[in-house]
Design a binder for these strands. Sequence first.
DNA 1: TACTCATTTAACTTGTATGTTAATTGTTTA
DNA 2: TAAACAATTAACATACAAGTTAAATGAGTA
Lengths: 120, 120
Amino acid sequence: MSMRRLDRTFAALADPTRRAILARLAAGEAMVNELAKPFAISAPAITRHLNVLERAALIVRERDGQFRRCRLNPQALQAAREWLDFHARFWSESFDRLDDHLKKPSKPRKPHVDREPKRR
Amino acid sequence: MSMRRLDRTFAALADPTRRAILARLAAGEAMVNELAKPFAISAPAITRHLNVLERAALIVRERDGQFRRCRLNPQALQAAREWLDFHARFWSESFDRLDDHLKKPSKPRKPHVDREPKRR
DNA sequence: TACTCATTTAACTTGTATGTTAATTGTTTA
DNA sequence: TAAACAATTAACATACAAGTTAAATGAGTA
């Protein structure tokens, strides 16, 4: 799995407009102008969001006469899901180990640091 | 769940350096200089990545003497996981419906007549 | 053909992300 | 106390993200 592909997937998901577009497409295919309706941004801005989603392989576009039909590519979420699922589990295990360690320290740690990190 | 929080989480995950830092931290706590070792970027750049991760609540930092100890916050992945899991399932259902639609046009179905696959 | 509609591209503006080096803060140690 | 070390902040450069308006492209229709 390519790092860049994950980069693109996560970056595409980091925008609320794009997540909303994906949520709409989950209910079924749609044309660009329908996807644009809920948003107060220009048509070119929508086109750019769709470009980002397409480059991330999250959607597919095809011409349909005068229109352009958009639909989801459900496989594209998989890589991101796998990364998250794997790490979520791994993190929990890491924390279980930390718990054990804190409950039964094999040797005394440094004394408690009673200081907050400095805030600016 | 807040949109902005998801924004921050996904944006933080969109960078390979930050994902590598998280992967390292999954193996256990670490000080900043240890986290910085694998990367050919300056210390301030690492600090900025850690700031992004902290603002996304993916990590926690605390001073430990001369050092600063970093560890994961495993809960922070949850919102992103939930979004992805929900949508991944929803997308699949969406595709199942599409399949049904393609396989069962309005006329009574004829079980052994297979339609051609979707055109590209 | 000319007109209209859907969408994209071009050109530009603005804000944010990511990196740098130099200086600063806070802690440990000689 | 002075020097060394860890990490951050300051100040700056550059690249990219995301929005705008105006023009171009491609398809349907009078």
